[in-house]
Design a protein around this nucleic acid. Sequence first.
DNA 1: AAGTGGTCTAGACCACTGT
DNA 2: CAGTGGTCTAGACCACTTT
Lengths: 236, 236
Amino acid sequence: MKIPLYRQIQAHLKEKITSGQYVEGSLLPSENDLCAEFSATRMTVRQALTELVKEGYITRQHGKGSIVASIRKSLGLLSLKGWTEVVGASDRHGTTSILQGPVLQTITEPIFKHLLHQEFHTEFVFLKRLRSVEEAPVILEETYIPNENITALTDEPLVDGSLFRTLFMRYQIDVNSMQQEVRAIAATKEIAGLLKAKVKSPILQILRRYGTSKEGFYLYSLIYCNTEKYAISSFN
Amino acid sequence: MKIPLYRQIQAHLKEKITSGQYVEGSLLPSENDLCAEFSATRMTVRQALTELVKEGYITRQHGKGSIVASIRKSLGLLSLKGWTEVVGASDRHGTTSILQGPVLQTITEPIFKHLLHQEFHTEFVFLKRLRSVEEAPVILEETYIPNENITALTDEPLVDGSLFRTLFMRYQIDVNSMQQEVRAIAATKEIAGLLKAKVKSPILQILRRYGTSKEGFYLYSLIYCNTEKYAISSFN
DNA sequence: AAGTGGTCTAGACCACTGT
DNA sequence: CAGTGGTCTAGACCACTTT
């Protein structure tokens, strides 16, 4: 077997968590149970569990067990302050509307150049989304995904409306890291219009590159956020 | 002994790294050497090393060894894009000047209220610093440190001009986590003046709480950043 | 070939959380 | 109290890097 046993256990548990078979807040099987299930020793099982803690899928409590973590917080990076509080645990007064795409195109934003891993002119799947809280638009997000045999993205709707979830379910691509640049800019006419802000009002701009479990495969996002009512928060 | 052996090994190595006895880019003693030195088994030594990787002090390479990481990047959170590139590996065209403090006072910024862990009116050591690149001011940082027997901070200068390093050297307090909120705001007259930007120009505002190795002890920072030339970037 | 880190076994004792 | 995770031992074989 090429893949280490602890990686297999890790992947197996991750699958059960993301698919909802292990519910948020519940307990994973104990270390000893997992040892039996996978014919492994505790050290091996613990290595898998330690990885899951590091990735934020579970927390552990001495004497109790491994607890499935609350929301899979998109890597603990961006979470709209108040998005979940205002909106409840499951996003439902928050809405996302797709303004454009998914559609094939090349990157036109020169701003991406210096953190681009691919050729500037390769083809990307493009997606432009507007996220709102209580009817008020807050985030404008333009996402570029290099077209490496994922053209089907443009044909079928997203799983649960989530891009990351779609990539995971349909292509087994797990987004697992990120690099970003944050700036304050003055709203252009177009951005002000979409975010219902005044022209020239301060807007948060985030340039982002996501790393994935597929070697050399990155996603790119250009995000504009009206932080008048909600701030962007992050942990760690 | 109350402290686990692997924690002791971890602390020992961390000390040698931060004090410069193990130089950046060089190799740590091999696992077997460390086993001998601490009369421990490899699993125990490896647990210490794994923690150091997680904290960013070292990287490891199969067949080679444990390599002391480059800069201790304040938790991989904020690093001025270009600060190190523009400025060389060791910060030296970047300057920090202390505008005010360290001095004792209470927090006056109501903005801190909702992520404050202490009472609003407890006493804090206050510090106001301006960071520049090539003579141009870029970051204004106001830091509040709860005054728990650290009054000496106000008496002696900072070690290497670094607050974190001072806390570590003089009080064995290690800053190891962070929570932040980011907003875009319009520059006030005062901020515009200090950052040499126009009044009402877009400024990045960061509200930050740092967690430390001392249970329940947090630092607070209010940061203003002119992102016209340099962006704030982060990894992970 | 020698040394390094990566994975794994088969035990052990302890501290903590539940009943 | 039984069950859980936290720490630790004393080995083993393998894959990778260097000489």
